[in-house]
Write a protein that binds this DNA or RNA. Structure first.
Lengths: 331, 331
DNA sequence: TATTAGCAATCAGATAAAAAGAGTGCTATT
DNA sequence: AATAGCACTCTTTTTATCTGATTGCTAATA
């Protein structure tokens, strides 16, 4: 357990380093504390031995270790209110009744990204809890048609179908069959339902049933596979941070942004309802970043929003922003 | 007019620089030419005076100037066949009858991007020549519905509508009215047609006409505005080129990728049907890149595909790839 | 016993000087 | 017209020197 003074010093060091991105010297601290730099140095040495601080070289000031950041986040960080500008800019988005939920989320995270210079991520899973509401077909010309699929949550998918030598009526019969028998089924169960409920009887109603059946089967297969959506906003903000002022590091991070599996892993850990913080090695994305994320749940949709920045992140500010956005989305 | 030998030397220098990214010395050239390095040096001096070559410093080898690249492209470049691997990988995409056109384009450019280490761009304009084919409405719950709009070219747009205190029948009447009177109108003219043809009479058929009318008007306004599509594939390839081995330059280019206006300008110049090459200052994107583009036109869609790389680009290869893809798309 | 003043030691970063290497431009020669 | 030869130029790499920030330790002090 750390003493009161050690807490104070660690907190000052973390805050100073977050702000200035420069190793913190004992002098800087003793100005703000009523004791000499030698005393601070002694305490810093203890804090380093305990693993909360690090040096960049033998005679440098101290920077927080990952353990140091973790301790700061868990015990020392103060909750700061959103400032007026942040609040206002976001509120304009949330008050706009015109916007669809997905637009609200994207736009609000765009704002956060612009204001904080961090990168934000939206991960949402569409098909999972969506049930088939209606399917319809619009013919485009003799051989082509568009299949439209709408779910009970208003999610829409469409697909071009090219079927040569098939009459439109046959297709419409199939659609009617599906609408009669399959509506209400969760999207990712539709294709198996097609197989067991529709396939056996489609021959009675539809002539070229095989070709048409396969086409629709594929459409639904595609749709349930397409569920995961990854939206990364403000990638270029990576350039703005001192710790990424190295072309190889930037490339490294950009390639991770493009790695869907890595990005989706953000969603995986901690399925709880809080805001989670993963500092450095604690996340599976990159040792040099911190990921702050939360899950949201609405009647339409659920997903994850996350903010990615350097470990030297404005933790308090980001946590507040994320918390506020989460609450507004769920409202 | 350049002599035969000057042509030969310029060509060798451009090709060597494209390959090795290193200023070309007289020695390197004279190995491949039956004359001494001193002779080559004399010719190089002439070529520099004429503006085809440049030096990076007083005693360095020569690199091609923009004028030099231009001359190479216009007069010296040899058409090279696609190699077997390139041809094969692309053909798999083009032979896949399942894929929609837009997928074919994206996937083939993804392949080009991977193979060449350049960045590719797809610019397509949807609404322009699309005519309204059918509009329909699917109710989701008491107050929400999804509007589906399909055009004669199979382009689909959908929008959530939240209308409180409006009966579904009223909405359906409006949709019927639009389907009867507006179908066949080009998308970007629909909203004005709504205003002049529908607005005056909608009151007769629909009770809460104002609210419903506005909702549909907005949907079409949005849709015609949304016409321009920008798809950039292989951004991270920027990191792979020596000339961009500088974090500020990379940032610069990435920010231009995100600048829609700048990217759309690629489409603007030269509306002809050929492959156009814009070297350095010739393009409006960035002085350090070359843009090679072509327009494509199909019965469904037309647009522009482009490849962006350093000025030191494998011109011949890229032109061939682009030409091949253009032809396959238009087939 | 906790704190502090004082000071040598350490090391990054900036600046300068020196050495090595690649390639040119010019002149004299073939 | 083409070439050989060589001094000259400029980049790149290496080495050396200096400066300034900051620490760790020791001894003195409260």
């Amino acid at each position: 357990m750390l003493t009161e003074r050690q807490n104070e010093i660690l907190k000052l060091i973390v805050m100073s380093y977050i702000k200035l991105a420069h190793p913190v010297s004992s002098n800087l601290i003793c100005d703000k504390l009523k004791c000499s730099s030698a005393t601070v140095r002694n305490e810093m040495m203890t804090l380093e031995e305990l693993g909360y601080l690090e040096k960049t070289h033998t005679s440098s000031g101290r920077i927080p270790s990952e353990k140091g950041y973790r301790y700061y986040v868990d015990h020392l960080m103060e909750v700061k209110e959103l400032n007026g500008e942040e609040y206002q800019k976001l509120q304009i988005i949330f008050d706009n009744q015109q916007l669809e939920l997905s637009d609200v989320i994207t736009k609000s995270l765009q704002i956060v990204s612009d204001m904080t210079s961090y990168t934000t991520v939206i991960l949402d899973e569409k098909s999972h809890e969506n049930k088939l509401k209606e399917i319809s077909v619009v013919p485009i010309n003799e051989s082509e048609m568009v299949v439209l699929i709408v779910t009970d949550k208003g999610y829409v998918e469409h697909k071009d179908l090219r079927l040569t030598g098939v009459s439109l009526d046959e297709v419409k019969n199939t659609v009617k069959l599906i609408n009669d028998l399959v509506v209400g089924t969760p999207i990712d169960e539709v294709s198996s339902k097609l197989e067991f409920d529709i396939k056996p009887i489609i021959g009675k109603y539809v002539k070229q049933h095989e070709m048409i059946y396969n086409a629709f089967y594929n459409v639904f297969e595609d749709m349930s596979r397409k569920g995961n959506n990854i939206n990364i906003v403000g990638k270029n903000n990576v350039f703005k941070h001192k710790e990424f002022n190295d072309i190889d590091k930037v490339q490294d991070i950009f390639e991770k942004f493009d790695d869907d599996e890595k990005m989706l892993s953000i969603k995986e850990d901690d399925q709880n309802n809080d805001i989670s913080i993963y500092i450095g090695k604690e996340n599976h994305l990159d040792d040099d970043v911190t990921v702050i994320k939360t899950n949201y749940k609405t009647d339409k949709d659920n997903g994850t929003i996350a903010i990615i920045g350097p470990k030297r992140m404005e933790y308090s500010r980001v946590v507040n922003l994320l918390d506020y956005i989460k609450k507004q989305i769920e409202r």
